[in-house]
Structure formats: C-alpha cells, structure tokens
Design a protein around this nucleic acid. Sequence first.
RNA 1: GUGGGUGUAGCUCAGCUGGUAGAGCGCCAGGUUGUGAUCCUGGAUGUCGCGGGUUCAAGUCCCGUCACUCACCCCA
Length: 420
Amino acid sequence: MSEMRAPKGTFDTLPPASAQFVAVRDTLTAPLRRAGYGYVETPVFEDTSVFARGVGESTDVVAKEMYTFSDRGGRSLTLRPELTAGLMRAFIEHRLHTGGLPVKLWTVGSAFRYERPQAGRFRHFTQVDCEALGVDDPALDAEVVALGVQGFRDLGLTDWQLQLTSLGDSTCRPQYRELLTAFLARLDLDEDTRRRAEINPLRVLDDKRPEVQAQLTDAPLMVDHLSDSARAHHDAVRQHLTDLGVAWVEAPRLVRGLDYYTKTTFEFVHGGLGAQSAIGGGGGYAGLSAALGGPDLPGIGWAMGVDRTLLAVQAEGLDVAVAAGVRAFVVPLGAEAKRFAVRFVGQLREAGVAADTVYGDRGLKGAMKAADRSGATHAVVVGDRDLAAGVAQLKDLRSQEQTAVPLGELLSVVRDTVGP
RNA sequence: GUGGGUGUAGCUCAGCUGGUAGAGCGCCAGGUUGUGAUCCUGGAUGUCGCGGGUUCAAGUCCCGUCACUCACCCCA
C-alpha cells in the first residue's frame, strides 16, 4: 500500500460515483442559469483581508479555520473558506454596481477550512454560490430562496426542510443583542460558553447540549424584537414564498456563523446526514459591500454544499447520475480488424454514438469481457474472416442474438440499433 | 482544540480465553484455439497501520504513535 494519501479531511471523487457529483452540481446550478444569473469565476485564493473584513474577524472561520500563507512576494493570501467574499470583492473591483441593479451572479468551486473532519464536514469542499446584489426587496429574497429550493426539487430530494428567520437590521439587532446578553448573564454556563456569549451571544441560542437548551426556553428571540421595517420585510418575504409555493419552518433560533448576515436568514437541513445536517444556507447581508470598501449596497444570497447534497441524495437512495459509459463496443480479431475497429469507433463517435473498443492485446475473450464491463448494450465483433466476407457481427449483449451486417450498412445499422 | 470508536487481501469483514492468517466479493487463467454476463475448475495478492514492551511464542495482552471515523465546537 502506498504512503501517499489525500490530505486529512479531503477525499477523491472517482468513477462511477463522480457521475453523481457532476449531476448534483449541475442540477443545483441549472435554476440559476435559467433565471438569468451570470457566471463569475474568481481565484481560489484571495488577499487575506478580503476574508478577515468580509467574513468577520470574530468568526471561527476567520479566527481559526483559514488556510493562510505568504507567497514569495511576502503577501498574505488565504485559500477561500467560502465563496461570497471573493465574489463581492470582484463585484466591487469591477464596479458592477454601475450597471442595472440588481446584479445577479453565481459561481461554483472549491472552498477550504481547517477543521476537524467528521461526517459531511471536510477541509476541502465544493459549494454552489448564488448572489443578488444592489436591491433591497423582499421579493428578491424570495426569488433567491426559491432558486435553491428548485435545485433540491429537481434532484428529487424530499427529506429536507427550509428553516427561515430574520436576524434584524442595524436598528434593532444591537438592542436585541443587549437584551440577550443580559439574559445569558443570569444563566449557569460554563466558561467556554460564556466566552462565546461575549463574541456572539446569538450563537449560544443554537447550542445543542440539552443542559444549555433547558435554560434557554425563556430566552428573548430576535423575531419578537424586529424593527418595523425589518418586521415588514420579513412578512413580505414569507408572503412571496407562499406565492411561490415554497414551504418553510420558522426557526427563531437559527444562527449563522458568518458575521455579515442581516434580515432574511435561512438554512436548508436534511434528515439523513448526521450532525452536519445543513446542505445549504444563506441570507441577506447589508453591510458586506461597505465592509470591503465598496458602495453601501445590500445583497442576498446562499451557498449550497455540493458534497453534502450528494450525501443527501445517497441517503435517499436517489439515482441522479446520467447514464455513464458507452452504447456500442467494437471487438476486433486480428490485425486488419484492429485497424477497422479503431477507424469504426471514430466514425461511431463522430455520428454521435457513444462507443469504445479494446486496447492492449487481450484476446477475444478478454475483449468481450471489456465489452460487458463497458456497459454497452451491443458489441460489434469483427475478425479478419468477417472483413474478407464484407460483414461484421452485431451482437445484442442482453439477448445474445448475433447477426451479420454488411460493412456498407454497419454505421447506420449500429446507430439505429443502439441509439445515441 | 476536546472526547468516543475503529485499523487484518483491491473491497466488505471473520479470527474464541496468546500457538507465526481465513471467507465472500472482485481480479487473473482454464473449461469454450471466433464470443461477455451465468455455471464449473484452478490461481495470485497481506511489512495483520507503525514503533516499543510482556512472553518460549503476539493479529490477539500492555504502552506510545499515526491514520480513519463519529460527536462537541463550528458550518456547506
């Protein structure tokens, strides 16, 4: 066994399972493409300050989970721990806000966090990201959420739910925060939790330990202390979601780990994943653009975990992969037949038929075995003897029926028999 | 960063109270010198994660270490 291994917390996605990964990734992005969102490609690493300022210095992600390094020019760079901050940096750098608003963007790619791996949590993972920037409109919030919902529906997922709440805005959140801090100060909490309460008291609300939860039954909730405008925004979002046929559950204790979220906040959770049950999440972020030195513009967006969604697909036993493999497999026998096979496979592919042949000297039996494993429904067996007679044998690998086909008709017969 | 579990063939695993390794699947070959899958027969592959200790003897017991895994924290 080799000592070479994928780094801790990373994994390789190999055939045939990789076909499912591709299907999940493409299904999640399809609704965005259909809705007119534009694709953006940004670097996998950014200046460290993009994340420090964008994600928030006090978050765990920035404080202890970033892959940060110096390049040869002495610059501090960081492998992106999420995709939104880099997207915003590009949005600001290229002054995309000077066009029509909102600006609707999506991207997909790798993200990196130095965390202890566990089920559904890795140091390298893939996210699909969707952002709508520059307009504060509850209908836009609803659209963004609905586009995420559509992806899950298209995959056939059923064991999931949308959790929704509002984290308030700059006028009501600070007041609520004080209220909550005062409440938490009266509880019997361990030192670790106290420290967390200081950094972000909201996060204590979704502590999973029963002894903590028991003390939180009477905790004040953000949704009960929203400003009039935040309240109206939240109500309108829910009305639009209803109109769009999107169901949700109220999650007044939903907290997200990135500092930039405001108002609409949501998470998609799946029942088959273990502790890391979130397959996607997002929300509004009023202050992010300004925090990165850009215009003071609002935004709404989400990130979906492709790997976690794939786990969800597998947990539900769904068959999402497009049929891989080939339809026709050419089996040559002899030197002349070999030349014919290589040429004929090229013709089949050119004609749109997924086809393959055998490479390496394996003999007829081995070649037939390869044909079987390829997933092809039909084999084209051709030996020098057949070529001399001007035919090839077309064999249905399921029924075992074999018929001789004149070479002049072979291409069209195979194409019509096996399909694309 | 903290805690629990597990490391034996390519994969899934068995190996009782210590006596120097096995099964199924897969792979290869033959049965069928021009036919796969099915069936029959045969075959190959292991530093038992690594290091140390106890013992006449360690896959088995003890210690350490690494990896994987699950959970906390956090999050996709």
